[in-house]
Design a protein around this nucleic acid. Sequence first.
DNA 1: ATGGGTGCAAAGGATTTGCAACATT
DNA 2: AATGTTGCAAATCCTTTGCACCCAT
Lengths: 144, 144
Amino acid sequence: MMNTDPAYKKLIECGIRPSIQRIEILRYLLTHHTHPTVDEIFVDLKKRVPTVSRTTIYNTLRMFSEKGAAFMITIDEHRVCYDGTTEPHAHFYCKHCGKVYDFHEMQPPRNVTSDMEGFHIEDAQLYYKGICPACQHTEEKKIS
Amino acid sequence: MMNTDPAYKKLIECGIRPSIQRIEILRYLLTHHTHPTVDEIFVDLKKRVPTVSRTTIYNTLRMFSEKGAAFMITIDEHRVCYDGTTEPHAHFYCKHCGKVYDFHEMQPPRNVTSDMEGFHIEDAQLYYKGICPACQHTEEKKIS
DNA sequence: ATGGGTGCAAAGGATTTGCAACATT
DNA sequence: AATGTTGCAAATCCTTTGCACCCAT
């Protein structure tokens, strides 16, 4: 049954009509925790839905982030990427290899300081940048 | 004396050679807390340094953020902007008017959760998005 | 048949690159 | 002279837009 497909279910929960393309895009996000860009999803989806266009993926992902089905991540100033995990968590960008990691145990603070009063907050993102463990080893090798 | 100019001083402190352009760009950041884009700085700088180019501003701001003289802010997926205030604080993006606000009393958490171990963190950004107080009033008018 | 969804081609726009000119020590 | 800095023009490349087609209700 369609109803048991996690991607299908999440679309319904978020009030999004489930087309083939939308299901496939969300399924990709839910099964690949690699913070893909539009293009990465496009290349993969094309295998299963050869007629799919980048435009659809752009539009769909933007809508997903507006409806709360995915996070739009702007941690890398060169390219937007997406995350299907919508439980609050933080992200890490490695300045060396460009990879984006999840910190599931860290999340954006949700208390409200006095200067935040009157602002209607719908979304929060917490980004860290630096060098990931793997690249630290690479760097050490380079130096020694 | 040059040494008393805050922009000049900060450049020295950050290990950046103070050229005319660099001083002017940093001075703009230190006196305008509007989170300007490259183009906004460009338009203003051109008045005082008519030969200045966008390229220089792109390169200079990138370098500033690498050397810790400014923050690069990617809260708006369409354009990067910059902030000369390098004390830790949070930012708010209004989805309605596009303005970026500071929350000086809020800052990115700096404790380390278990899944962050081994990562070398150099930078942290905390972004909130929603509707600012001014735009909430506008919206109310529209509806009523 | 009507509205929503998709996809193509083209336009738009921000950012980077290559390189030559220039300044500074 | 040597090194670092700047600026122009061109290239790049991600993203959006306009519009026609298509599908489902």
